[in-house]
């Protein structure tokens, strides 16, 4: 009977209930829920200088970095004008002609015109 029992045991090893798809899904869901979560890279805390934080806040308030650049340019120009005085025609003429006087239309020319 020993050999015959082995025949029964062999049949039992080949048989047996197969797990249903539903049972497999439940077991895998349990595995997912119980699985340890591996921690990602820890962000390094960087001390941001006060002036950079201020600049970032200003940039956000006025509409971005381009606006900040424009404002900075305007400030510089204003400081320059404050030191150099108002812009005059002599200054402009000098800038164009290199310093030589450029006679404008003389009053006598008006009388030499056709009349």
């Amino acid at each position: 009977m020993t050999d015959e029992l082995e025949g029964f045991f062999a049949a039992a090893r080949a048989a047996g209930p197969a797990p249903s798809e539903a049972l497999m899904a439940r077991v895998l869901a349990d595995a997912d829920a119980a699985q340890p979560r591996v921690a990602g890279p820890v962000p390094v805390s960087v001390e941001v200088p006060l002036w950079r934080r201020w600049l970032a806040a200003l940039s956000g308030a006025v509409g971005g970095g381009a606006m900040v650049t424009g404002l900075a340019s305007a400030v510089v120009a204003g400081v320059f004008i404050g030191y150099a005085g108002p812009v005059t025609s002599d200054w402009l003429a000098g800038a164009v002609s290199g310093g030589a006087d450029v006679p404008m239309m003389a009053a006598s020319d008006l009388f030499l015109g056709e009349g």
Binding site: L23, L28, A31, V38
Partner: peptide
């Protein structure tokens, strides 16, 4: 245990039956 989800599927297929 180290976070490999595929390992759970292989183990389940091997052990559950």
């Amino acid at each position: 245990a180290a976070g490999d989800r595929a390992a759970a599927r292989v183990l389940t297929g091997r052990l559950l039956p």
